[in-house]
């Protein structure tokens, strides 16, 4: 498969991204995210009970998507060691997490991916794997992934920005759509996404540009009708996710002169009703080195949890984390716009 875009973010330093997000309109007339929270007496934002352990096991990926907040790609070498994975397993075993959410990069590319799943398989109610789909088609050694997923009753959550080729390939690279369709057929064949099966296959929609997602239910209806009619593919739910203004998507916004308009769109759409459902309130995000964050986006901005420890999984302390303040900044407008946004779709 050829990759249309092979361009890593021009922002090498998370601090420079935060600087961008805090100048311009937010340095003058527009209320910052934290000022909005203060108006609602929700600042500082505090967590609820931790339920989801989201772990990014490495930034390597077979794709180089133009919107990727992880800045993932084939040449990324950051991968979690077995030692850190073991620390994660211990924390999962000794705490009451309901869900482990495994992400990357393409997490399946990690040589210890299957080992890690086997270690946690009996420890939680639900394991999510965020699969980009094309990894299943990329090499023979991955063709059996649907069977592996099934053997551990994994909930597969897969990105598919649109139900037709042009818009999908423009975001994710040439050939991604056709390979995604092939992978979805393989998943359907083992029972994933079928109405008579308990194997869950959800799709993730994120807009292919500088606009917000439409109503999630309406999009799901369109996706289901088109994928079934044109490709005989079934899935369970569509999760609509807003693109957050960081990493490659921030590059795109600036280069295309959409940055200011997009930030106004996010701040104008600020929905107080989304705050209580924010994923940072019940999720812990862990990076490949074992450092902890309030969400995957904070992970990419290197905004570690503001607990009293060193924010490393080796010193996990549930009480300290429960007492922490969630780290928020202008990118958080992406999670409170309209119906809200999280790794589980809308929150309102």
């Amino acid at each position: 498969m050829t990759v249309k875009q092979f361009k890593y973010s021009t922002f090498k330093d998370p601090q420079s991204q935060l600087k961008w997000l805090n100048k311009g309109m937010f340095a003058s007339e527009e209320k910052t995210f934290n000022e909005n929270l203060k108006d609602l007496k929700k600042y500082p934002l505090k967590p609820d009970q931790l339920e989801i352990f989201q772990v990014n096991i490495g930034y390597q990926c077979n794709q180089t998507c133009s919107h990727c907040h992880v800045d993932a790609g084939p040449h990324r070498t950051e991968m979690m060691t077995k030692e850190v994975m073991g620390m994660c397993v211990d924390v999962i075993r000794n705490n009451n997490f309901k869900t482990v959410d495994i992400t990357g990069g393409a997490p399946e590319m990690h040589k210890l991916f299957r080992w890690f799943v086997e270690q946690i398989s009996d420890l939680v109610d639900e394991i999510i794997v965020r699969s980009n789909l094309t990894i299943i088609e990329s090499n023979k050694k991955y063709h059996d992934l649907p069977y592996f997923f099934k053997s551990h009753n994994i909930r597969v959550v897969s990105s598919l920005p649109y139900f037709e080729k042009k818009r999908t390939d423009s975001q994710r690279g040439e050939g991604v759509f056709s390979n995604s369709i092939k992978a979805l057929k393989r998943l359907n064949q083992v029972g994933y996404g079928k109405s008579d099966s308990d194997l869950i296959l959800d799709l993730v929609y994120n807009p292919s540009g500088a606009f917000l997602p439409d109503n999630q239910e309406n999009l799901e209806v369109s996706f289901k009708r088109n994928l079934l009619t044109n490709f005989n593919i079934e899935f369970n739910s569509l999760l609509a996710i807003t693109n957050l203004p960081i990493s490659r998507f921030l590059d795109f916004l600036i280069e295309s002169d959409n940055y200011e308009d997009y930030m106004y769109k996010l701040s104008d759409s600020f929905n107080p009703a989304a705050i209580n459902g924010l994923m940072c309130k019940n999720t812990l995000s862990v990076d490949w080195q074992g450092y902890m964050y309030d969400c995957d986006f904070n992970q990419m901005l290197k905004l570690r949890t503001a607990d009293k420890g060193d924010s490393h999984i080796s010193n996990f302390n549930a009480n300290q984390l429960a007492d922490r303040t969630i780290v928020t900044n202008q990118h958080c407008f992406g999670c409170t716009a309209g119906e809200g946004s999280s790794c589980q779709g809308v929150v309102v």
């Binding site: 042009k166 807009p207 606009f211 439409d214």
Partner: peptide, 11 residues
Amino acid sequence: TEDALKKGYTE
């Protein structure tokens, strides 16, 4: 134009 893109219309 933006609304049509949001609502899933093709070009």
